[in-house]
Simulated assay, not measured.
Amino acid sequence: MSYYPPAGFHFKVQISGASSEDDAAFTEVSGLEMEIEVEEVKEGGENGFSHRLPGRVKYGNLVLKRGILVKGSQFAQWCQSALRTGPGGRLTCKDLDVFLLDQKGDPLLTWNCMRAWPVKWSVGAFDSTKNEVAVETLEFAYQQLRRR
Rank of each mutant, 00 (worst) to 15 (best):
M1A: 14
M1N: 14
S2K: 02
P5Y: 10
P5Q: 10
P6S: 04
A7F: 15
A7G: 10
Q14P: 05
S16Q: 14
S16R: 14
A18D: 01
E21F: 08
D22R: 00
A25G: 11
F26I: 01
T27H: 07
E28A: 13
V29K: 14
G31Q: 06
L32T: 00
M34P: 01
M34D: 00
I36G: 02
E40R: 14
V41Q: 10
V41N: 09
N47T: 05
N47R: 13
S50Q: 06
R52G: 02
G55I: 02
V57G: 00
K58F: 00
Y59I: 00
Y59L: 00
N61D: 01
N61A: 02
N61M: 02
N61L: 01
K65W: 02
G67K: 00
I68P: 04
I68G: 05
I68V: 15
L69T: 11
L69G: 09
G72R: 15
S73W: 13
Q74L: 15
F75S: 11
A76D: 14
Q77K: 08
W78T: 02
C79I: 02
Q80H: 14
Q80A: 10
S81W: 06
A82M: 04
A82D: 01
L83C: 08
G86H: 06
G86Y: 06
G88I: 09
L91D: 04
C93K: 15
C93W: 10
D95G: 02
D95H: 09
L96Q: 05
D97Q: 04
D97I: 03
F99P: 01
L101C: 08
K104W: 13
G105I: 02
D106Y: 10
T110P: 01
W111C: 00
W111R: 04
W111F: 01
N112E: 10
N112S: 14
N112R: 15
C113N: 06
M114N: 05
M114Q: 08
M114D: 01
V119H: 01
K120F: 09
W121M: 10
F126M: 08
F126C: 08
T129S: 14
K130D: 05
E132Q: 15
V133H: 03
A134R: 07
E136L: 07
L138N: 06
F140V: 05
F140Q: 05
F140W: 11
A141M: 05
A141N: 09
Y142R: 07
Q143E: 15
